[in-house]
């Protein structure tokens, strides 16, 4: 029964991924990316990774979709048709995929308890966690205690990413780059200053720089 659910979810994931690639409307692509996240969360439940499924459902289908939609509201939502036939990318992808499939032939079969991954530190965590940590959820005890140093790094990365986003977006619009006599030049946006609040100052019409583009 689990095999059936597993196969069905994997096939649905593949179909969704293909649909995302073919979709020209970016709004639809983002919504399908949300569907893709929910499907993978379902797959994680089938694979006993309930904590991961929880996170994927909250992050992938929730926050990630909201951020993507926020970006689309700022940059527009239609994708241009590719100008040339994607023969080279298809070749590269087919080749890489072929090599990877060849690589899996040496992988241990799925779900076998004798796989090497299950005989390193995992038995120690599963057997000793109850006495050493006293927390029933082994994922929590490994996350916060056995590998607490790792998690501290991850937390710092999230903080750093947030700082990066704020550095890029928290101030007003950045300068515009235009081509003047064959050289990229930075042009300040004249009628706006970075301190302006969101509700005032209508967006400027950048007609001048556009004319410079031809020059």
């Amino acid at each position: 029964m689990i095999e059936l659910v597993d196969v069905a979810l994997l096939l649905l994931l593949s179909v969704t991924a293909l649909a995302i690639v073919r979709q020209q409307n970016l709004f639809a692509a983002v919504m399908m990316a949300g569907i893709y996240s929910v499907l993978s969360a379902g797959l994680f439940v089938v694979m006993d990774a309930v904590d991961v499924a929880f996170t994927e459902a909250a992050v992938g289908a929730g926050i990630s979709t909201v951020l993507m939609l926020g970006t689309l509201a700022l940059v527009g939502h239609s994708e241009h048709k590719p100008k040339h036939r994607p023969i080279l990318p298809l070749l590269v992808v087919a080749l890489t995929g072929g090599v990877l499939v060849y690589g899996t032939l040496d992988m241990p079969p799925f779900g076998d308890p004798a796989n090497p991954i299950h005989h390193h530190v995992a038995p120690h965590y599963l057997e000793e966690s109850e006495h050493e940590i006293g927390v029933p959820n082994v994922v929590t005890s490994v996350l916060a205690s056995y590998r607490g140093y790792d998690t501290m790094g991850e937390t710092t990365v999230i903080f750093a990413a947030a700082v990066g986003v704020l550095l890029l977006l928290a101030r007003g619009p950045g300068p515009r780059r235009v081509l003047v006599n064959g050289l990229w030049t930075t042009v300040a946006r004249e009628e706006e200053s970075p301190e302006l609040e969101a509700d005032e100052a209508p967006a400027t019409e950048d007609d001048e720089p556009k004319e410079d583009d031809d020059g």
Partner: peptide, 20 residues
């Protein structure tokens, strides 16, 4: 449980880096 721990944190880090 080890892959679960690794991926659990990777998902949240992933959305933060996507936002960047």
């Amino acid at each position: 449980p080890i892959p679960h721990v690794l991926i659990l944190t990777a998902i949240v880090v992933g959305v933060a880096t996507s936002a960047l």
